[in-house]
């Protein structure tokens, strides 16, 4: 009976994962491997294709004052505008992750302050994990899989923009070798969200109890779904250490951008999350 409950939990989390996250790993891998004929992404590999891609997806434009246009130069403006649209997408993704978190059985019954803390500290880790299926060693899908942006192009941007994605590529290439599928990912995301060691939590015990159940469910899921992959459960959990370092480095880069870029403005939701984070 206990394992039946754990399987039911896995199914429930997988269903809400499918409900709230529009681009699944299955779909992303089909696009990346060219297995879908109707979904060939537009490739951004230089500034010219970035401008074309921008028009194609009609991304929200950052208002620019005319006098700054000439001062900054058109290329600087494009980079800032692109990262501005990345922020808008990240804010939407935070909203999707919040809905997913609320669907974890017991989450909404936790102290509301603790729900805020769990999301504040967990959401960037979740977003980085969710980026992995969109990436391969050569680049990443963006804009719901409509666009493929090359890793080389991202590396060619001026500092510190060029340093933003490279650590995520390095992590993702290794993480993807674990070959988790969407149903495994759903449970792993829930485990990350339900971390009882986040700073400032008021009532740790119910969070740890919830996480323990999801961990049992993940362990069972991985044994059943990947019977030949030895120690996969332990390998997946080890990734949580790398994730914390990635988030710390990411937040530091964002702080640097705030200090060095005149026209940089951080989305209010991302500001809330990153303020006093680490």
């Amino acid at each position: 009976p206990e394992s039946a409950d754990l399987r039911a939990l896995a199914r429930q989390l997988y269903e809400s994962y499918l409900k709230y996250f529009p681009l699944t790993k299955a779909k992303a891998r089909a696009i990346l491997s060219g297995k879908t004929s109707d979904n060939t992404p537009f490739v951004i590999h230089d500034m010219k294709s970035l401008l074309e891609g921008e028009q194609m997806i009609n991304c929200r434009q950052m208002p620019m004052q005319e006098h700054r246009r000439s001062d900054m130069g058109i290329m600087h403006e494009v980079e800032l505008r692109f990262f501005h649209s990345c922020q808008s997408r990240s804010a939407e993704a935070v909203s999707e992750v919040t809905e997913f978190a609320k669907s974890i059985p017991g989450f909404v019954n936790l102290d509301l302050n603790d729900q805020v803390t769990l999301l504040k500290y967990g959401v960037i880790e979740v977003l980085i994990i969710m980026m992995a299926p969109l990436m391969n060693k050569d680049g990443t899908l963006i804009s719901y899989g409509q666009i493929f942006m090359t890793r080389e192009f991202l590396k060619s941007l001026r500092k510190p923009f060029c340093e933003m994605m490279e650590p995520k590529f390095e992590f993702s290439v290794k993480f993807n070798m674990l070959e988790l599928d969407d149903s495994d990912m759903a449970l792993f995301l829930a485990v990350i969200i339900l971390s009882g060691d986040r700073p400032g939590l008021l009532n740790v015990k119910p969070i740890e109890d919830l996480q323990e159940t999801v961990l049992h469910s993940l362990e069972l899921q991985l044994k059943m779904n990947h019977p030949d992959s030895l120690q996969l459960f332990a390998k997946v959990l080890q990734k949580m250490t790398d994730l914390r370092q990635l988030v710390t480095d990411h937040v530091q880069l964002i702080q640097l951008l705030k200090e060095t870029e005149v026209d940089w403005c951080l989305h209010p939701l991302l500001q809330e999350i990153m303020r006093d984070l680490y």
């Binding site: 935070v94 909203s95 809905e99 302050n113 999301l119 809330e272 999350i273």
Partner: peptide, 21 residues
């Protein structure tokens, strides 16, 4: 904490439709 995280709080309290970000 809720006061410092008004948007997150709103997202958590919002019952169904997505919050306009």
């Amino acid at each position: 904490l809720k006061e410092k995280h008004k948007i997150l709080h709103r997202l958590l309290q919002n019952s169904s439709s997505p919050v306009d970000l």
